[in-house]
Write a protein that binds this DNA or RNA. Structure first.
Lengths: 181, 181
DNA sequence: TTCCCCATGTTTGCATTGCTAACATATTTT
DNA sequence: AAAATATGTTAGCAATGCAAACATGGGGAA
């Protein structure tokens, strides 16, 4: 898994090769198949590990702010983007590329726990007794925003921008806007 | 290119194989290399074609609304999402996955033209003489929103949602929110 | 018309990849 | 002590991306 993580970061998830990971780990190319069903399983393992780490960070960040405030919510958004930048490969595996990962119950559950942190903050912010429709809509909108921003950044799509962007400021301002009214 | 497009849609860009495309097109596996440098070049070709088609659609949509209004801007957002749903594979190639496509000038230029349509609408909406910082920031934010939404949808990440979402309404409402103040 | 070139294609070959099968060995369980 | 399990190895297969050498047919120059 360590070798897999390393290669996913350096080469990218799509260029990842089991053989290369084996070479890097110093084992034969058949060794991983004692531990994982196939290549996808290997990647899924590091994806879930990454998501779990991210969730723990999220809870740590939330605890550093008054609960259910613009501050705590914007901090979550910035954390998401930081994760994308810091661990691009793992981030892609965890929050993108679900073509292969389809209908993996454990993966979905893992994501649900992450998203749950955001939902809870939004619920508090909106003063609602339960995570109902409006809460989910706002939480989802906030997610889409940082999700899109993250991918546009790591996919180098900012090349089309003619003026520089201050990402943290943008996250905060848009968080406020998306929560308005 | 037709075979490539077909396979990209059915198997997905990551599972796309040159050999299979050749089989489908009824030519030898070496034939494509007379027309494209390598596999990536083939995919890039259909990506750019897709982007260009999208840009034309964008301009058509804009023309159907009063220029620089919430209506025209929200319509662009919905069109983006529709493209993602209708041509998932090509959409991924065009607006995602730039790990390989790095520093392809023509590709960036093509994207710039697409984004330019949005920028122009936002510029009018904000009554600005030129696409300056504030205009770019709003346009970018709108893009991130629909971009994130599109990918979360095609990547099946909506499985974590516990209430159903009305996407078109969400696009419109969030467009308004992101353009406020 | 004749000739040559060039665009396009083919066959063959090679290294790499994902994965399986058969076999070895060590460690834990009974 | 014996058996079962966990973990590794080597060897092999089919598929892939791509390169090299070899065909060929049609259009412009002579």
């Amino acid at each position: 898994m360590e070798a897999t993580r390393t290669l996913v970061e350096t080469k990218g998830p799509d260029k990842f090769s089991v053989s290369e990971a084996c070479r890097l780990a110093g084992v034969s190319t058949a060794a991983p198949y004692r531990h994982f069903g196939d290549k996808t399983d290997m990647l899924l393992a590091v994806a879930m590990d990454g998501m779990e780490r991210q969730r723990m960070q999220m809870e740590a960040v939330v605890a550093q702010h008054p609960r259910g405030t613009i501050d705590s919510i914007a901090a979550l958004g910035e954390l998401y983007i930081q994760f994308a930048q810091r661990e691009e490969g793992v981030f892609r595996l965890a929050f993108g590329l679900t073509r292969d990962h389809e209908d993996r119950a454990d993966m979905t559950e893992c994501g649900q726990r992450c998203f749950g942190v955001v939902v809870e903050e939004v619920r508090r912010y909106l003063n609602r007794p339960a995570p109902d429709g409006p809460v989910m809509e706002r939480a989802f909108s906030l997610w889409t925003l940082v999700h899109g921003m993250s991918f546009l950044m790591i996919d180098q799509k900012l090349g089309v921008m003619t003026t520089p962007l201050d990402i943290p400021t943008l996250v905060r301002e848009n968080t406020i806007r998306l929560l308005a009214r």
